[in-house]
Amino acid sequence: MKYYAYYPGCSMEATGAPVETAIHAIAKPLDLEFIELEDWTCCGSSPYSGVDKFKAIGITARTLAQAEKTGLDLVTPCSSCFTILHETNDLLKENHKLADRVRGALSEVGLTYNGTVRVRHVVEVLFNDLGPKTIAATVVRPLTGLKVACYHGCQQVRPSYGFDDSEYPDWLDKMAVALGAEPVNFPLKARCCGSSLVISEPDTAIELIYRLLQNAADNGAQAMITTTCPLCHLALDGYQASVNRKYKTKFHIPALAISQAIAFALGLDFKTSGLNGNITSPQKLLEPFMATQSRSTEVKIPAA
């Protein structure tokens, strides 16, 4: 069993719920334990750093300090949380004046941070700590022949915090292959979904989402396999109807977060895989693969 300090991030309690459900569903069969940080608070994301950079750093530091107490790697499924936590962690090591200010603020609430936390992304953990081979060995319901566009998004791979490539990454593609699927060429796989502006500048964001869906469709994708980022997943899954209305398109490209795709391939049922929470329903697309019987969560992993 591998243990991690887990930071879900605010969206996982709402719009990201289906992705989150699947993460918890696959953890046990894959021998991972995500231990949620007690009483965690928001990382601030980009909006807070746009309101007040210093306060934003202070609130992110609280999470780092909490995680340090556990002695475990800090893992988050949200790419925005990942970047903010990583960036703040680096800043506190490089900028001593800032680190002093943060130390003062944390001491007000009885916390300290010594800069020892390693910030990681769920996708990176799945790829590096398990790996496609181990994942492949657990598959009982392969997605044979399913053509997928693998969407990595922005903040998982950029600025550049330990992923393979900041422009054309392929870890999700390799994991999709492990599940039996066929990744298609997807040039926009690490381009922006516009989530951060989807409320205040919907035209801008919906145009970016449209470009992604069109690019996936042009390359023959029947579905998308996305990062675990709840914002990316919501953009691609939830906003398809908005794109269709605005651009008079007829996209129906189910977006499965990698956690959901793995859950399904492990033989877990629709509800346990969080798939019934998807707005662009994958039911019809996945039905042909359901012939393989669902089974309980007990999966034996062979040695890597």
Partner: peptide, 22 residues
């Protein structure tokens, strides 16, 4: 995916202090 009520967490008291100090 859209709870209509907020779930305030205890940690907000610490956040308020951290924010004011920062």
């Amino acid at each position: 995916r859209m709870p209509l009520t907020a779930k305030p967490v205890k940690g907000r008291e610490q956040l308020t202090k951290i924010i004011s100090k920062m």
